[in-house]
Every structure is written in C-alpha cells, then in structure tokens.
Computed example of a mutant assay.
Amino acid sequence: MWWFAPEQQRWVIQPLIDAGMAQDAICALLYRFAVDADGLEVVHDQPPPIRAAWTHTIDRMLMLPGPVD
C-alpha cells in the first residue's frame, strides 16, 4: 500500500467537491468504492452532477502513477 501527497488526493476528489459533495459523504463514497466491485453502482442513487463528478474522479484515479517496483 502506498499513499499520495495531500495535494494529489485533493486533486482526485476535487470534481466531487466542486459538485457540492460534503467531505464526509466523499469519504463514505470512497469507502463504498473500495468495498464494492462496481464503481458506477456506488453512485447510482446520487444526483446527476455527483454521478458526472464521480466519472471525473475515477478518471483522475486512473491517471495517478502506480507503485514502483
């Protein structure tokens, strides 16, 4: 397991913040994502702006570098 710098973490979740999601709701969403297999299913009950922001958040997660061997 590795951690990213706080500015990288903030960059990843910024679309959700911009969409108006509260920090505790973001934490809960990320926890659900870590536990559930379906990334889109975790936001199925959210309003469209949050679902769109989640797509951008996933894109940003995928842009981060992986672990160095």
Rank of each mutant, 00 (worst) to 15 (best):
I50W: 08
R10I: 07
E7S: 08
D38K: 05
P67L: 05
E7I: 07
P48M: 02
V35D: 01
L29I: 02
M1L: 07
W54Y: 06
V35M: 10
E7N: 01
A37F: 11
M21W: 06
P6V: 08
L40Y: 14
A28W: 08
G66K: 13
G20H: 11
M21L: 15
L64E: 06
V35L: 05
D18Y: 03
M21G: 03
H56G: 01
R60L: 10
A34E: 13
M63L: 11
M1E: 09
W3I: 11
A22Y: 07
A52C: 04
Q14E: 14
D38M: 05
A53D: 06
I50M: 12
D45K: 15
D36K: 14
A52P: 00
T55Y: 04
L16H: 05
W11G: 03
V35S: 03
D36I: 10
R10V: 06
L30A: 05
D18C: 01
C27M: 05
P67S: 10
R60W: 08
I17D: 00
W11F: 05
L62K: 13
W2P: 04
P6C: 01
C27N: 08
A19M: 09
G39A: 15
A28D: 01
D24N: 04
E7Q: 09
I17P: 00
L64Q: 12
W54T: 05
W11Q: 08
Y31R: 09
F4Y: 12
Q8K: 15
P49A: 02
I13E: 11
D18Q: 15
G20N: 07
T57H: 10
P6G: 06
P6Y: 09
M61F: 03
V35N: 01
T57D: 02
V43F: 09
I17Y: 01
Q14V: 01
V42W: 01
Q14H: 08
M61A: 04
T57A: 11
P65S: 13
D38H: 08
I50R: 07
I17H: 05
P67V: 12
Y31A: 07
M63W: 11
A28E: 09
V12Y: 10
P65N: 12
M63S: 07
A19Y: 05
H56Y: 06
T55R: 09
A5P: 08
A5G: 04
F4E: 02
V12Q: 01
M1D: 00
L64R: 15
R60I: 03
F33N: 12
T57L: 04
Q46F: 10
A53T: 12
L16D: 06
W3T: 12
D36A: 14
D59W: 08
D45S: 14
I50P: 02
T57M: 14
L29V: 02
A34G: 15
C27L: 08
R51S: 00
T55I: 14
A37G: 15
L30P: 00
M1C: 02
E41L: 13
A22H: 14
